[in-house]
Write a protein that binds this DNA or RNA. Structure first.
Lengths: 201, 201
DNA sequence: GAGTCCGCATGACATCTGTCATGCGGACTC
DNA sequence: GAGTCCGCATGACAGATGTCATGCGGACTC
């Protein structure tokens, strides 16, 4: 019997998933959580075999929960279920030791299969998302360029970015300009968006 | 018996909802759709009593489907179910004649209740979202300012916006500057984000 | 060890962007 | 009808932004 922890802030979906998984003979939902922190606490308390985590949750996102669970409950395999994910989230998830990454467009039957796969030390990544990640490729940005872009993400003026990074304004402009050129963007704002979409931040 | 159309691109959730609603004695799911266009076709074919529409769907979003259904199947009440919605979507939905607006954080039982409410000519809007919408208030932007902001949304340079709007670059800058001042933003990029969040675009 | 490449960092310069003062015309009040 | 207000539209100016040429130092090749 596979003991599953279910974490999703959307009550509707969490309940629905629980009742669907209950139909499977070899799967039991031993705990449910509505936030990242709650998921972590439930994981510690129940030590489930598989943690099914939503990516977007209040407090602490699914990837972060997975990373902590890996340390604190090493026998528990984590998998991410998400609504509208980009390739970026997938990369971060795999880096955090997540063993499954699935969009919510799959069917319930398929989800159950994937839970079994993940439980028996297997891995599963949605084909389309994997293709996106491969298409995005490796980041052409240098560490500093990526750092400047992430600071520029919220639209702050260059002066503020410079002071936060303890750099000359000219230097900051230079990195942002280089990043925009590499990404084919017209300015730092679109460059930041592109980099975020491709998981390069 | 209330005949329901269910539209959500996330197969997992759609199936889960269908099986949960099937548990209610007075509700039948007569059709399911995985995209906006499919939802419209199903609505025309089955003429359901209530259409439960996801906001974000490929092809045509829930609000747009609701608007068309209102014309073509007037006896059908539409309601929107959404993951992470802002106040903006709510406004547009109400303008399109939607009778219910619910986040997916509600429970299945509550969803069934709301379907009944909507079916008997009632209305239901999530309290928290309503509060957000009221807090956002009416747009302080003039029509032209809003238009410029929406053109500026994707980060295009002012020159391009000016040519698209057939205006002098100086004029465009002026509107954007005024909009940013009204919104308390430091530049047009953050101004566009704020306006979008509050449903003023 | 010399040569080469690449990332980090900076300042000067040209361009783009935001702010301001100004004018025009429609709507509304009195 | 005069006065006032507000939205639309523009150009001039100052300040912010992006581009370029330059230099430094570590890593890697030969």
């Amino acid at each position: 019997m596979i003991r599953v922890l279910l974490a999703d802030d959307e009550h509707l979906i969490r309940g629905a998933l629980a009742s669907l998984l209950a139909l499977e003979d070899d799967i039991t939902v031993v705990a449910e959580a509505g936030s990242g922190d709650e998921a972590l606490a439930m994981g510690r308390a129940h030590r489930p075999d598989v943690a099914v985590l939503d990516l977007r949750m209040p407090g602490r996102d699914g990837v972060s929960v997975a990373a902590r669970l890996r340390e604190e409950v090493p026998e528990c395999a984590s998998m991410i279920v998400t609504s509208h994910a980009g390739a970026g989230a997938l990369k971060q998830a795999l880096a955090a030791g997540v063993r499954g990454f699935v969009p919510k467009t799959v069917s319930a039957r398929r989800l159950a299969e994937i839970i079994r796969t993940v439980h028996t030390d297997g891995r599963y990544v949605d084909h389309e998302l994997a293709a996106d990640a491969i298409a995005a490729g490796e980041s052409p940005l240098t560490p500093r360029e990526a750092e400047m872009l992430s600071l520029a993400e919220d639209g702050a003026p260059v002066a503020e970015i410079a002071s936060r990074a303890a750099l000359s304004p000219g230097t900051v402009r230079n990195y942002l300009s280089a990043a925009a050129a590499k990404l084919g963007a017209e300015n730092r704002h679109v460059a930041a968006r592109i980099a975020r979409e491709r998981g390069w931040l």
